[in-house]
Each structure stands twice: as C-alpha cells, then as structure tokens.
Computed example of a mutant assay.
Amino acid sequence: MISDIDCLKVGQSAPNFSATAVYDQEFIPVKLTEYLGKYVILFFYPLDFTFVCPTEIIAFSDQYERFSSVNTEILGISVDSEYSHLAWIQTDRSSGGIGELKYPLVSDLKKTISKAYNVLNSDGVALRGLFIIDKEGIIQHSTINNLAFGRSVDETYRILQAIQYVQANPDEVCPADWQPGEKTMIPDPVKSKEYFTAI
C-alpha cells in the first residue's frame, strides 16, 4: 500500500486488501492480489438498502458476462458488513433488494479499503469511486462521482476496451469516444495527421 493515500493516481499499483465478501449466498475471503492476471473493475458505493446504489450494482451484474468475456472481474465495495450485504442480496429486487449477483460484494466495515483508495467522505461512507485495474495490478483509470448520481456501465466497458487495446498495441493511442474497430492514432507529430485526414 502506498504511504500517502492522497496521492493515489493512475499508473500506480492498486492498494492491496484482504476482506470478506458475499458471493452466491456465502461469505468468502477476497484478496485483490488473487486477481493478478485479470483486469478488475473495482467500484465503491455508499450504502446498502439505498436508492442509486442498487441501480449500479444490478447493472454491473446484468452485464457481467460481457466483462468476463474480456478477462475482467468485478468487485463492489461499501462500508456495510457482510451480513448487511447478505440480507440485501436475499431481498427481492421488487422489495428494495438486489437479488442474486454474479460478482462479490466486499465488506469494508473498518473503512480501510475506502481510505486506501481515497474515496471515504466526511460522513464515513464511500463516494462512487470506480477503478479499472489491469492484469499487472496497476490502476489504469479512476473516476469518482458524488453520492447523488450513478455511473455508466457502458462507458466503463468502453474505457476497459480502450485500455486493453492500447496495452496490446503500445504504438497506438485511442482518440475521444473510440470504439473497438474504429481508427486509432499513432502518437507522432507526423503520423498522427493520418487520423485527421481519414475522418
């Protein structure tokens, strides 16, 4: 873990953690380093049994296979206990619950993970922080929303694909709104002009 959490930036190693999570109606141990070799979508949300949070959590679960197909795992984290997570999962969506999920929900009851990722607010809950960690354990993308508005799963997937593309093609870069199959750029004063002449 880095010494000064306020300086956590993309390009740095993701702070490791060990915690208890709920997955498939069971409590399981989760350690971030066990995901090395895969990409990880690590997202924080404020609290269980709230309003915006279930929309994000369910949306990531509904699209889990799309992420899994590109060697990516998803982890959701809040400052609730694993028992609260379990109760929320066991509550039907029509009754304010989230139902079965396809990825683990991690408990950060002691708030050490939220602090390490610098997303803990003054009220003691996590802001909507999202981190894309590559298969080497390096943070490649981060975004933090305030509490009142949710994130886009589709945009998260688009950014993940761009990260994977440039890592597989280190001589290229992806322009704004790039989608797989679209033209990329060569980061060179002369060669980059080829992109603009083609659009």
Rank of each mutant, 00 (worst) to 15 (best):
F149T: 15
D6Q: 09
T112M: 12
K38Y: 11
V119A: 12
S114W: 10
Y103H: 06
A162I: 00
D80C: 11
G137D: 03
G124I: 12
F49P: 02
D80Y: 07
Y157F: 03
L109M: 13
A14V: 06
T184S: 08
S142W: 07
A148M: 13
I144S: 08
I138W: 02
P189Y: 02
S3C: 05
D171V: 04
I74A: 03
Y23T: 05
T184H: 04
S94I: 11
G129Y: 03
T143A: 12
D4R: 00
N71H: 10
L105V: 05
D92Q: 14
S69I: 04
D188G: 06
F17K: 10
I58F: 03
I77S: 11
T50Y: 03
Y83I: 14
R128N: 12
T91D: 08
D4G: 01
K38N: 14
C174D: 00
G97M: 09
S192Y: 06
I159C: 00
N146I: 12
T55C: 10
L127A: 13
T156V: 01
I98N: 03
T33M: 12
D171Y: 07
L120P: 10
S81R: 05
L47S: 10
A168R: 08
Q179L: 12
I77L: 14
P189Q: 02
F43I: 08
N145F: 06
L8T: 02
N16K: 06
K102I: 07
E155S: 01
E194V: 09
R93M: 10
E100V: 14
K110W: 04
I138C: 02
F43K: 08
F27Y: 13
R66Q: 15
I58M: 06
V190N: 11
S142E: 09
K111Y: 14
A126S: 15
K38W: 06
T33Q: 14
Q161W: 03
Y64R: 12
Q25S: 14
L120H: 12
Q179N: 09
S192A: 11
F149L: 15
I163T: 02
R151W: 01
K115H: 10
N121Q: 09
P29T: 07
V125L: 12
V10P: 07
A162R: 00
K191P: 00
V190H: 09
Y23K: 11
Y23P: 04
T156N: 03
D108V: 06
G181C: 01
E172P: 08
Q12A: 10
R93L: 09
Q167P: 04
W178C: 11
D123A: 14
L75W: 08
V52M: 12
E155T: 00
V22M: 11
E155L: 01
I133E: 01
Y64L: 09
L120A: 12
L101Y: 11
I199G: 01
N118P: 04
A14T: 05
N71E: 11
I77C: 14
Y165L: 08
I132G: 10
W88G: 02
E26S: 14
N145G: 03
N16A: 05
V79Q: 05
E172R: 15
L32Y: 04
V52G: 13
N118T: 05
E65D: 15
N118D: 12
E194Y: 13
L130V: 14
K115C: 11
G96F: 03
D134P: 04
V52P: 13
N16L: 03
G37F: 06
